[in-house]
């Protein structure tokens, strides 16, 4: 047998809440990239809207002294994902690149996973997806159109990862050094250059609030943040005191223990609401 020398990846995202302006560009980009059906007012009122990434908005203070806070929430691709063990047919599992994968053709629609997800990141297809005729040709051919009765969620745009891998393999050159790849390395060449693979939401973010890279990549933009977050978890585990003002890094619902592959950076408040100059 051929020996694989696959380069290991572990994908991760950092969401900087200080930069997020709540513009919803990521929501639209995700909708267009992943063949998500068009939500109507009716869908929202029934709380059955399809949103793989959503911006939650919180108000702070009393009128007229109010301030809006935004937080983008998507599938957290947890390491100890609560959705995975409850699936009776193994339609959701963790792959070796740190992604929580939903296999549509295995799913039988029990909805246990969406009940067990602490982030409400999973959407169930209650209806057959329907697009107006004018939009039929804009469907992404790389993404399956999900039928009625199955669960779906953010995939970290895995179709873009596979497309990027094919592009790297086709050119047959090392992305970083420009050398020609030969022999066995060529067979399982899986290294992705930074920027070869970005999810649609990250690519569309106008303020770079979302950052996406390999956690193992020493020069990448997210490694430092993940190291910091893991250190805090370690300290908390040993009961050490953590200065909350010292670090901005946190994971959503850390007490649940799902250890997501997403990290949020706290919003910095140079002027707290009551001391803000009028």
């Amino acid at each position: 047998m051929v020996t694989t020398n696959k380069i290991k990846h572990k994908w991760g995202m950092v969401v900087d809440l200080d930069r997020c302006t709540g513009c919803q560009a990521c929501v639209i980009a995700c909708q267009a990239e992943n063949n998500i059906p068009i939500n109507t007012k009716d869908y929202f009122q029934q709380r059955r809207a399809y949103e793989w990434i959503r911006i939650e908005r919180y108000w702070e203070g009393e009128f007229p002294n109010v301030k809006a806070k935004f937080i983008p929430i998507l599938c957290q691709h947890c390491e100890n994902a609560p959705c995975e063990p409850v699936c009776p047919v193994f339609a959701t599992y963790h792959n070796d690149e740190g992604m929580n994968v939903q296999v549509y053709n295995r799913c039988i629609g029990t909805r246990y996973c969406s009940v067990n997800c602490p982030y409400s990141a999973r959407m169930f297809n209650y209806w057959q997806p329907n697009w107006p005729d004018s939009l039929r040709n804009q469907l992404n051919p790389d993404v399956t159109v999900r039928t009625r009765g199955i669960m779906e969620k953010c995939t970290f745009c895995v179709q873009r990862l596979r497309r990027g891998e094919v592009n790297v393999e086709q050119r047959g050159i090392e992305p970083l050094t420009g050398e020609k790849i030969t022999g066995e390395r060529k067979l399982n060449y899986r290294q992705m250059q930074e920027g070869n693979y970005l999810p649609a939401c990250v690519q569309s973010c106008p303020t770079n609030a979302l950052q996406f890279a390999d956690q193992y990549d020493e020069t990448g933009p997210v490694k430092e943040r993940f190291d910091e977050a893991n250190e805090i978890v370690e300290k908390r585990h040993h009961g050490e005191h953590i200065d909350e003002n010292h670090t901005r890094t946190y994971r959503l619902f850390e007490e649940v223990g799902a250890s997501p592959n997403l990290i949020y950076l706290k919003k910095v408040e140079p002027f707290p609401l009551e001391k803000r100059p009028r």
């Binding site: 690149e97 992604m99 994968v101 296999v103 053709n105 790389d142 993404v143 399956t144 990862l161 399982n188």
Partner: peptide, 13 residues
């Protein structure tokens, strides 16, 4: 046989 990836997301996405 060829020891290439068999992850689900290689074909299903």
């Amino acid at each position: 046989n060829n020891n290439v990836p068999t992850d689900c997301t290689v074909c299903h996405k």
